[in-house]
Design a protein around this nucleic acid. Structure first.
Lengths: 202, 202, 202, 202
DNA sequence: AATGAATGAGAGTTCATTCAT
DNA sequence: AATGAATGAACTCTCATTCAT
């Protein structure tokens, strides 16, 4: 049992090593400049070795994407223990953008880059990505029920809010480098405040 | 003079020919499936010829980007003759998203894809892209002055609104295919309405 | 002694297992699509294990070849109990082609494919393959002695007959798929008849 | 015109160069040990260059095959001016085997190796290979008409004769190295004589 | 006896680019 | 002005094989 466990652990470590290296490469050289050889170089193994742990390149990228969605989902769960629905919804928005800013490359992978999702063959895993959207809808629904938001089509409100935070996040990721730091935070925080504030009716 | 003019004109025509073909290829096969050979095939010249008009591949993409920004700017100018600032601002938002939806590949080029802007060496051309942002700010300012919007930091409002429309546009471009058509338009229109409505105070 | 015997028997079983799997693979996927990994998969052992029983891949193929020659020889022995030399010789020819048709991959291995024999290092085992030729010569000799065949150089007659049946067999194996089944049998049988008939003088 | 002609000629020369090198490689290292890189090395060009003249590897092999069939057909045409049908038919058989012996690797390509024909996508070119068979049938038919051969199913006789010469040829190619030279010729010639002689009725 | 881990060598192919003409 | 010819560098992936355990 001990032996199998160790082997399993070692296998997992190798997988993580490869995924880590791949992610770093994406960060350093961009999504479509990663090659099997570069990954191999980074982990100091031969390219062949990677194929012992991943069927092919797309499986690596797919794993990376799933990892990102998991991290993402967990980051959002953090706000769910806020009792007041209004505060919770606002916190949710902020958490969304904060996650994006702190994990820009994961966010890129999930919501900006085109290829990863295009190359994904098994879209049954889309649930991984809709989980979070459902969370948002729940929070909005509770705001509506508690009278914080005007009664309206839930889909519209949800898409509206998602667009807002996604817009902020992706603009910041793509253009943020042009905005000096203290101001960047200010802009993020107040934009969310400003837009959300308008929506609440009490 | 006549000769030089003709030569200049011919050179311009060739440049346009190449850019047109490149854009078509992007539309047909996606940004990173364009190759010099494919461009050459499309214009029915040899690959070598392209190098007489463009230093290298990235210069083509850079030109394409500038072209996109021009088209984009012009599309937005269309709403400027609306007299009422509130209506004008709302129309601006809609025009933004509509342009994005109707010119998804241009929009991609400008605001979503990573490489084109990364490979761009001379960012002094950023002005091309800020022109449009200035337009937005002007419209917001006039709304504020006319009492339609609460007085607040112009930068915050502008970024907030840009985020919203950019969010809508980019989500639709990346995920829109999952949403059936009549509902897509409904979602776009009402999301904008919903978010903007909250901001106006009269 | 018992222990050693058991070990020897086990070793033999493993060798057979590997050879069986290899032959099946040849049949299923063709001679040069066999890989050590596929053999290993088929026998549900690791690729490494195979190397405990065979020096390398070519040794497997060599063993397979020997196996084929044995099977081949035995198949021909079947006609030896026919008393009449003329009938026996004709039966021999038919048996030859029938074996080839029913064991196309073995036949391929022995007489058509190039690599197996080329890679074979120890051609002292050629005797395995000449055994059968000797059988043919014996049968021809007896036909000559019994006055069924004109007296002539035995080597010439033997080579002539071998050529005929080998020609039929290999053409059928390589091109047979183009000939619809009932006609294929007809062609095989009658070609042999036709050619042999000419040779017999009574 | 002169220029185009020269270019065309140079292109042809390059194609021939590649085909020659490929054929030599097949001779030296066997059909499935040829690689694009080895061909490139042999002609002292880069691998990429080959792709300027051939779509891919299989196109090279396909060309080689066609070349072989052409050569083969022409070799047989040589006997057609022999007036007497019987002599012509016998000469045909000899010419067949002689071609095979003198162009063993072409013969291999056409009639022995499995892959080339398997990998060929466009079997509409099979006519190239049936041309020769038709020639054989014509000669047989004329022998029958002239009373040299018993009246029988033409398909049977043709297949019978083809099998004979193909058998001789392929055995010689595969096993010929074991037979010392003066005897090899003797064997070939007399086997054909022996087998044919039996068939003729006058 | 058996294997998991690892690898070097090599496969076919594509790309942006250059050079001589 | 235009191009045909050529290439180096790179790509993903597969194979037989070995070594330590």
């Amino acid at each position: 049992m001990g032996i199998n466990e160790r082997k399993y652990r070692e296998k997992q470590e190798m997988i993580d090593l490869i995924l880590d290296a791949s992610m770093k490469l994406i960060i350093e050289e961009g999504y479509d400049n990663i090659t099997m050889r570069k990954i191999a170089d980074k982990i100091e193994y031969s390219p062949t070795t990677i194929y012992l742990y991943f069927k092919d390149k797309s499986e690596i990228l797919y794993s990376l994407l799933n990892l990102a969605f998991d991290k993402f989902y967990e980051a959002q769960l953090g706000v769910q223990n806020i009792g007041n629905p209004k505060e919770r919804l606002m916190a949710h928005g902020l958490a969304y953008v904060n996650f994006a800013m702190e994990n820009q490359h994961y966010y890129d992978l999930m919501f900006i880059l085109k290829e990863p999702t295009e190359n994904m063959k098994c879209p049954d895993d889309w649930q991984t990505s809709t989980r979070t959207y459902d969370l948002l809808k729940t929070n909005i629904k509770q705001c509506m029920d508690a009278g914080y938001l005007e009664t309206a089509d839930l889909e519209v409100i949800a898409f509206s809010l998602w667009s807002l935070v996604h817009g902020i996040a992706s603009l910041m990721i793509k253009r943020g480098f042009m905005i000096p730091e203290p101001f960047r935070q200010y802009l993020i925080y107040n934009s969310i405040q400003y837009a959300f504030k308008g929506l609440f009716i009490k």
